[in-house]
Write a protein that binds this DNA or RNA. Structure first.
Lengths: 117, 117
DNA sequence: CGTAACTATACGGCAAAGCGTATACTGGCC
DNA sequence: GGCCAGTATACGCTTTGCCGTATAGTTACG
């Protein structure tokens, strides 16, 4: 499968998928999960403990991350281990953090987009 | 001003701002604007024409992009020119497009996050 | 098989975010 | 100053997406 060069073109459907991709990263719980997994594989239970999220909720978020290709899983009996599927996402998170190091106060105070946590 | 190294840490407030940052990129119109501006400076009117967005709406989106540090402006009489403020965002868009080249179909079909355009 | 641990999915409710539209504001020209 | 062009902001409405919670499904053990 050849890697296709995607030009930075304002095609409506392309910008729609791109926007959707970023919305996938636009939830604090999902970000937290990816940050935790950047350090190593974890089970759902461990992720529940470490994020302080309700189990049912977290599984929904994990389903989203899995479906979209951000994470992958393996099962060991009752335990399901999650890990990062595509290292590119960590690069993206690192780039975002760089931007935020400089503009984070403004981003935090943006009135168009709400939310603290 | 020293550049501060931001560790990939699951601090709730850090993940909140990071998520908010990505939500800023989570709108197709805002993505389209950044894509158009990647090729050069444009006025609001030109952006209105090229995105096919209502003027009032677009100005709201531009306000968000400006406030968060994605774009910057200069005024020439009645005309306001917008341009990319931080090239890192273009890198982010390019990375996202790479990811989408591989996972875009799944992202597009994600049921947790809706939206076509 | 019954019970428990672990995880995934479903569902109704509510908050967030974008919408269309109207209006306010700024600059230019006669 | 009046009128127009260009842009920014405000507001109520609708849609989207996460919430808490319940339940379904899978695995393990006695």
């Amino acid at each position: 499968m050849t890697t296709q060069i995607t030009p930075l073109r304002p095609s409506p459907s392309a910008s729609g998928v791109t926007a959707k991709f970023f919305r996938g990263l636009g939830d604090p719980t999902r970000i937290r999960v990816l940050q935790l997994l950047s350090e190593g594989e974890l089970t759902v239970g461990e992720l529940v403990d470490q994020t302080g999220t309700l189990q049912g909720r977290l599984s929904s978020h994990l389903a989203c991350l899995r479906w979209c290709g951000f994470v992958t899983t393996r099962r060991e009996g009752r335990l399901v281990y999650y890990r990062i599927a595509d290292e590119r996402v960590l690069g993206l998170l690192a780039s975002a953090d760089e931007f935020i190091a400089e503009h984070g106060v403004s981003v935090d105070l943006c009135r168009v987009i709400d939310g603290e946590d």
